[in-house]
Nucleic acid binder design. Structure first.
Lengths: 237, 237
DNA sequence: TCCAGTAATTGGTCCGACCAAAAGGACGGG
DNA sequence: CCCGTCCTTTTGGTCGGACCAATTACTGGA
């Protein structure tokens, strides 16, 4: 057990976190208006510049709606919520997704990556295969090392699956994966912990072979099956 | 033709827009580094506080990568790009998607909304149906009016289809639709222009009936068919 | 040639003051 | 009693200067 880097949070980050908490725990509800920036300044003893910066950050994350000279109100995140909002919600929960969130995530994964997988298997080129092979070679190199680096391997797995979306020719799929990134990385870290590093890389190679063979349905069903395996392993715990 | 609301953009927004333009038009390429914040301050006569805020915003949008004390470089948006990045790209192009983007969008729509549709049809409750009916009632009310308001109708259609995702029980799908929002709204505006307002509302009612009947496959194929119709109509133009 | 020491530069944070627009009263004519 | 006009207050948005810590670039001596 190492202590690791100790980072001092900034006042602004703390303020953002505090307001996020109030919203996510329901103390602040959609439609509620926040105190004015000056009032917050007095309460918190933080300069108005930083108060303002924090509120703008929360607006960009989809938590608030700011109208100039009218104030900030808590947004209804059914209306404005994005992946950013969800990431914050998960972070608040100590980085753990609820069972429902996990299921939702995997369902979304099948929908998006499944579609990409099908398309890619149908129209893969040599260039596509080379692109994916190169990422797997990096993953193999990571396996060879004596010191295992799970984070680097998870990153490689992420890039492999994003590569599938990228090479499917659809311009939206890889962007969606980028949006999901923190969640997907967490997923792979867990998968490595449960099934082992080698097993995950081996599975990736299976996908590549199915794509090479042009077996769209086979690749899709492989995805469905591995997701279900993951789910049943999760249920056991 | 009405003039509409005139909103004064903030300096920060203008700076963000300008840098976005430079990146999207290729004047700034991935890997290029930006001038330092102080240099930008001199060039633009905008205070460093605002310069910094603008750069951070661009980082959150996936256009830049900022390293403390090293500067900001233009990001490779394969790596960092999000829906926000794509929205900006489309906005720069006058709100028009390329043919490939349109195809990608519709493919993503089938993947996501199709999955939601299937799930919802299998496990819909009376509450779910009432929720969707209520949105369609609003759409009907809009149709009755003598003055047609396409934007309001497009919004209702958006909320109906987001409602499908919301009521599917998957926590990710509605968030994804929010992320897509500007693009989806553009899509519905176009669909209203091509097929007419009544026709679009009528189609929505068909989905609702298929969901009510629990016909998951029927609903899914309805979606596929209407997407293909839209595509072939687009090809004709 | 090398290296320690230093000066300059960088992004990140913070402050207190000011601006223009909007909201809310106060006032006065009808 | 009503309604427009004027003025004060409050609001978010902006500014320029300051400081910090880390990095980089340079410089002088061994």
């Amino acid at each position: 057990m190492s202590i690791g880097v100790i980072e001092v949070p900034t006042r602004r980050a703390l303020l953002v976190q505090k307001i996020e908490e109030q919203i996510l725990t329901g103390k602040l509800r959609a439609g509620d208006s926040l105190p004015s920036e000056r009032q917050l300044q007095e309460e918190t003893h933080i300069s108005k510049t930083m108060i303002h910066a924090a509120l703008v950050e929360l607006e960009q994350k989809g938590f608030l709606e700011i109208t100039p000279r009218r104030g900030a109100v808590v947004a209804n995140y059914t209306e404005t919520g994005t992946m950013e909002t969800l990431n914050a919600r998960i972070r608040l929960n100590g980085g753990n997704m609820t069972a429902k969130q996990t299921r939702s995530f995997l369902e979304a994964r099948i929908a998006i990556e499944g579609a990409a997988l099908r398309r890619l298997a149908e129209r893969r080129t040599d260039e596509d295969l080379a692109y994916l092979e190169q990422i797997l070679a990096q993953a193999d190199a990571l396996l060879e090392r004596e010191k295992s680096d799970d984070a680097a391997l998870a990153d490689a797995l992420f890039r492999f699956h994003r590569g599938i979306c990228l090479r499917s020719g659809n311009e939206f799929f890889p962007l969606l994966l980028n949006e999901f990134r923190p969640i997907i990385m967490e997923f792979w870290m867990r998968s490595i912990a449960v099934f082992g590093a080698a097993s995950n890389v081996h599975l990736a190679k299976r996908y590549l072979e199915l794509i090479r063979a042009g077996d769209a349905e086979g690749a899709f069903h492989r995805l469905e099956r591995s997701v279900n395996e993951y789910l049943s392993c999760l249920d056991e715990q």
